[in-house]
Design a protein around this nucleic acid. Structure first.
Lengths: 260, 260
DNA sequence: CGGCAAATTGAGCATTGTCAATGTCTGTGG
DNA sequence: CCACAGACATTGACAATGCTCAATTTGCCG
């Protein structure tokens, strides 16, 4: 098991909070094991007691909940580099399901190891907290998307979000990517029916804003699409970075040094 | 300014993570100022750079976003004891608005003081992180509510959530409380129109599950209402408590002692 | 008593859902 | 190399949940 597999985690956390060398070393020293899962596999089940946290290394995953009427709502999408269940580190009961969207590889870390890391290396704790805050920001935007936008706009918004996140993660071009979801899954993510998703995608295609080829999405007019989608990427907090100056102002330097 | 005003904060954080005496003292020693706001006042505006965090002491507040079409979606409700903008502590740009629902009192703390607290007292950091995780869990449930439940169920679910949270906060009986929102606000929280909210409330009343008198809600059949609402309170994580045993297993004792 | 915000109701409409049939692609086994 | 199965995508016809518009009522406060 090469510890290099956790390097993306260091990169991600580092983009949020400035880390010390000891912080980086502590992250890379986390004990983990690798797991490969097939599409549809459950990683977390609602009602379980979480014992571990999973970081996605390759493939796509999603969170979902099923209502008593049997309707499924997809709550978020996850791309490589994402922790799919940091909530399991501190909450004692899983309140939703996490499933692989495609074949996936995960690094699995014990929840106690993550808690201990957050305590002994406070900057790493802040970085993981930031990750949770950004997750929460995306949930908020999804509430708005599903609550107050019409069908066409919802779909367009999801297309924009995926494009922008994949681009930021270095996985694809913002203007051309492979949609990892079926239309049924798109429907569950937007609170629509598969039939209506199909019609809206067709209309988006006809309007010339996007072109589809199987599941390849080509965005022909980013400005037009993001305007139609009411897409403002602020909520993704892609530029989130606490500067050196800010870190010093927090007065954390002595504390962090003391525990090293 | 009596530091006792922060006592509810200690109680809340303590219900999530076991704190040391030094942790409690550090929380109570936070510099803060009091602020009273009228109904509708904005506490955070989308696009601003946050410099402070607000804890609600009395009254109700909510988060919202407005779409390009001018439609408003309420994203969450806040009751006394809630931090309404912990995201401002670590994120550099507000991605949504926070508004007072009623006349409110807040304790305002500088964001750098909270960051420093999280670094020097890691257990307090974990407790605040937990708060964010629970917030995120509630957002997830709202995505499901607005995305996959019909109008009646959405309203009933919101009534149950409010009842249960007010009860847990010691503000009301689960079976009888004062609704802090107008029907227009209920509509914005459920992704419906005020007219339809009105009809659904009328039908809930006629069904005998609830009785309304002005804004007083009396729940006459909690079992019946929560079943209709598809309400499972797990997502509120009201029992969230990290036991002493769990704390020791995290290995945080030495680190916490060191910085004290 | 008058003014105003909020609640309530009715009538007609439209966005989105339901149902059901058909088309397309991919992989597998003969 | 072809036939077939199965998953997914696509389309049409019709239905319904929830929306729009507009009028009226109620409660509250000065």
């Amino acid at each position: 098991m090469s510890p290099n597999l956790l390097a993306p985690l260091v990169r991600k956390l580092e983009s949020r909070v400035t880390l010390y060398d000891e912080d980086r070393a502590a992250i890379l020293a986390l004990p983990f094991r690798l797991q490969t899962t097939e599409r549809e596999t459950y990683l977390v089940r609602e009602g379980e007691q979480p014992e571990r946290a999973c970081m996605l290394l390759s493939g796509f995953a999603f969170r979902q909940k099923v209502t008593s009427q049997g309707m499924r709502q997809i709550i978020s999408l996850h791309i490589p580099g994402d922790f799919v269940d940091l909530q399991g580190v501190l909450l004692n009961l899983a309140d939703h399901n996490v499933q692989a969207l495609t074949r996936c590889e995960f690094a699995i870390v014990a929840r106690n190891d993550i808690r201990a890391l957050a305590c002994t290396r406070p900057m790493v704790g802040l970085a993981m907290w930031t990750d949770t805050l950004i997750d929460a920001s995306i949930f908020r935007e999804w509430v708005v998307n599903v609550g107050r936008r019409d069908a066409m706009t919802r779909i367009a918004h999801l297309l924009c979000e995926l494009a922008r996140r994949m681009e930021a993660a270095g996985l694809a071009d913002r203007l051309r990517y492979e949609m990892p979801m079926s239309q049924e899954q798109l429907a569950d993510a937007t609170g629509l029916t598969p039939v209506h998703v199909n019609r809206m995608l067709r209309d988006l295609d006809r309007s010339g804003l996007i072109v589809r080829n199987h599941r390849t999405i080509v965005i022909r007019d980013w400005e037009g699409l993001s305007e139609l989608a009411d897409f403002n990427e602020n909520y993704l907090h892609l530029d989130q970075l606490i500067t050196e100056a800010a870190r010093i102002r927090t007065g954390t330097v002595p504390a962090a040094r003391m525990t090293s």
